[in-house]
Amino acid sequence: MKFKTFAAFVGPSIFLMLLFIAAPLASVFVQSFQSTQPVLERVEVETCTPGFPTQTCTTEVKTRPLLDASGKIQTTTEWVGLESYANVLQLDRVGQALADGAPGRILTIDFWKALRFTLTLTLVTLPLVIGLGLALALAVNNATKRLRGQIIFVSLLPFIITPVIGALSIRWLFIGDGIMTAALEGWLDRDISMFAQGWTIELLMNFYRVWHVAPFAFVILYAGLQTVNQDTLESAIIDGASRFERLRYVIVPHLMPLIVFIALIHLMDCYRAFEEVVGFSSQAHRITLQWLTFDLLTPDDSGNRSISRASASAMLTMIGIVILLVPLLRRTWRDHRGA
């Protein structure tokens, strides 16, 4: 294929990706070093109240935003260097907490709180997702042929459902005195409210993640199971391998590339976790990195969006993604050079 034809085919897609992915990335990078603020002016205002024999007048200095000709608030943009990053990271408070010997206090700062939760969520759910996916794939492979279609249909539901609604549907089971809370209370014989403290919400959020992603792992591993070499399996049986040994030494090694693939996709997606926080309304207790940026971008009570802090937080999130991607990219590069 000539370069010109190739360019004609790929062009529109590249153009879109450059315009809407690469360009925003660059602009976020620049924004994170800038700060846009309304221009304030200080004016002396004299307010008079009627009095006797003369009016009482007070003069005070007020700051108010300067308006331009069309009545909009004027803004200036200036370079602030790493100030936005410092605002997000709050390293002085981190240092203070370390100096006081109370590292737990670091987790009261939004960014570190979000980082802690995102990382635990990712690392706790990863083995669970792969384990459950593998167990499901093996069990479905074991089930009668007629039932497989139905089981796959039901299994796909948690994966396909809108994430926010998936989280909500689990939350509604537990909310207030919902049936699950009532059942737990009856079982444990104590008063439970799942949404009053952080760790119970975290438990539910972990559960939701596994529930939502396990079907994906299941479908891929199930497809992989269909290609297991039957001859190897049979020779393993002849060699006297037990069921577990066959799983351990024949099936799992065969599925290993798929497991690595699932792990990578899961790491990427879980690091971007966001919908849980919205669905479980957990922002008072647990937040994720992407939610932090989202929150900074949402207009606050006075209608301002803290774009520069959001950009800084977004760039910090990016660093994590880059760290996650480096091993993958190195492997692809090696494969490409080898090929």
Binding site: I21, A23, P24, A26, Q290, T293, I307, I321, L324, L328
Partner: peptide, 17 residues
């Protein structure tokens, strides 16, 4: 592939202003 891994909020922070 790298673009696929980007959190969407990073991009939205670029679009909004």
């Amino acid at each position: 592939l790298v673009f696929r891994a980007l959190p969407h909020s990073v991009l939205v922070a670029g679009y909004l202003p």
